[in-house]
Nucleic acid binder design. Sequence first.
DNA 1: TCCTCCCGAGAAACCGTTTTCTCAATGCAG
DNA 2: CTGCATTGAGAAAACGGTTTCTCGGGAGGA
Lengths: 348, 348
Amino acid sequence: MSAGGGRVRIYDVAHLAGVSVATASKALNDTGRMTDETRAKVKAAATQLGFRPNAMARGLIQRRSFTIGLLTNDTYGRFTLPVMAGISEALVDQGVSVFLCGVDDDPALGKLHLDAMLDKQVDGIIASGKRVDRKLPVDLSNLPVPVVYAFTEGHEGSVTLVSDDAQGSTEAVEHLKRLGRKRIVHVTGPESFASVRERAAAYRAAVGGEGIVLHGEWSEHWGHAAVDLLWTAEGARPDAIFCGNDQIGRGVVDALRERGVGVPEDVAVVGFDNWDIVASQTRPPMTSVDMNLKAIGREAGRLVLELAEGRAVEPGIRKLPCSLVVRQSCGGSAAVTHRRGGVEATVE
Amino acid sequence: MSAGGGRVRIYDVAHLAGVSVATASKALNDTGRMTDETRAKVKAAATQLGFRPNAMARGLIQRRSFTIGLLTNDTYGRFTLPVMAGISEALVDQGVSVFLCGVDDDPALGKLHLDAMLDKQVDGIIASGKRVDRKLPVDLSNLPVPVVYAFTEGHEGSVTLVSDDAQGSTEAVEHLKRLGRKRIVHVTGPESFASVRERAAAYRAAVGGEGIVLHGEWSEHWGHAAVDLLWTAEGARPDAIFCGNDQIGRGVVDALRERGVGVPEDVAVVGFDNWDIVASQTRPPMTSVDMNLKAIGREAGRLVLELAEGRAVEPGIRKLPCSLVVRQSCGGSAAVTHRRGGVEATVE
DNA sequence: TCCTCCCGAGAAACCGTTTTCTCAATGCAG
DNA sequence: CTGCATTGAGAAAACGGTTTCTCGGGAGGA
């Protein structure tokens, strides 16, 4: 109520209500035994004074800070921010706030942040990154608080959340097949990435054969180059390109347009990541696989809280489903007429 | 040292060192009076046990949480993340951690996060946003803790940090002039943005006349459209385009290429924001004005700490300089030959 | 030698809650 | 009418540190 929200103590509430501090505390927390009348009186006093308990004092005795830490090496925030949004969404109602710590790939910085968080008695830690198959530069095993990994590699016996790359990949290919596309190629990132391998494998399974998988870097430039490669090669040309991320997708769409190849009339394109700034700015806007990072964040928040409150959580890797966001780069649901017979060369 | 970093209390340190808790505390904090020998003995014991003080207990008495909150409505993180990185960088050495709270434009959510932070006794709050001339959906005046605004509009008498749009704009235009460009036009965002007006005014001053300013939306599409407009209009064509942000810049570069206009040979292009993912991916990579958001963050962190520690800070708006990041869209430093005489039409 | 002053170190109060323990009053059964 | 269980509420101990206060002892001056 009054301006200085931080000043009024439970002592003031107790005094106004005419009870002891102990009773006031119990009244406000709905614990202990007392008349309904007393409880109501205290609550009224608290409201009137705008009382908000000091979380440090409370936390000291409850051994609970209502605070969790998010440690990440994804300084650009491409992956971490949606995850963070999900975590926050899951926890803010429980009064839990989140420390965000960007540690780059610097072990010393990681330790610094980690120690600062532990000193502050965080109830748990969520580790996140920019790559599923890499670890953070700081060891989080044997911490005195629970840890959940989201979108980064965890330690032995940890709880880890990732997106289901295979399922997302399958969904994309099935979508293209449903639209009548026959010769679908996959242009993706470096094979050293686990997610690349997983997506490619699912792609192969979905096209029901070897398919064509082209590996390159995660850039628009590679998207261009891949199209050049495909269009200067001999044999049948693809009528659909499934890209390993949206930047490659953008390069592909641009290259196709520059070649006079119609998207989606001649070639359908699907991207991966659903990075809005990229996917929605291509011409035409690009259909893309969304990894539902926010959902991963929500789940991570929920799980770390479970652990913090002492409930057991089954360890292991949990894969959360991706979903396809349809834009205009694949054409309408009307089946597309196809032309030549399929020749499935293998480039890899 | 031992695994459970959180368990060892100052009591244990004191006991091991053979002194009282009070002495131990003073020894570790380099306060109070005692023999160097005693101090060293305590410190050794602390190190040996891996003692780290419980921040809640310490904070309770010191009325200091070594925690600050960052409130933002920039859910996409384009502006907030660099600011956050700067804040963190400035504060982590002092042991200060940062709560990140994304509040969208929802006043209720804002209040929820704000209350949670105040309960946790944050030492200060930094407000940030996606637009300099808009306020957050939550009132931060009359808070019991200091507030600093970074890249968002503050309240009366507050401390506010923004980038110096005019200076950045001037720098861009001077760069183009230095390279021999004569007919520089400005393609930018909606006039309703204060930063747009400021940048445009500086542009006009720098070109030394009315210049040409085209307003549109903040999109690649508008970049394309603007080029169409300029190239179908009568009269002399520009030999340089200064864009209001990188997305417009990207649209401009793409449109020019599609028209067969050489960048930078025929037309030089400069963007604004230096959003790496956009600026470095254009062909050719685009020179752009960087707002040095990280520096703004660092300064915000420094200032909020000053205030938190009771030192006075002059209120008002502080503008931090932008800097030009040169890539390849303006050509080398060699002067470019110019062709026609200048006709400076005004479109606006 | 005695008094004063200062130094090193410990005892205790304190920060703002929660929680356990204690206790008087009430109600009910015998 | 007495004894016992139950109830409502307060006193006090915790939580883990910091800070103020106190105090004994040694050094130095008279």
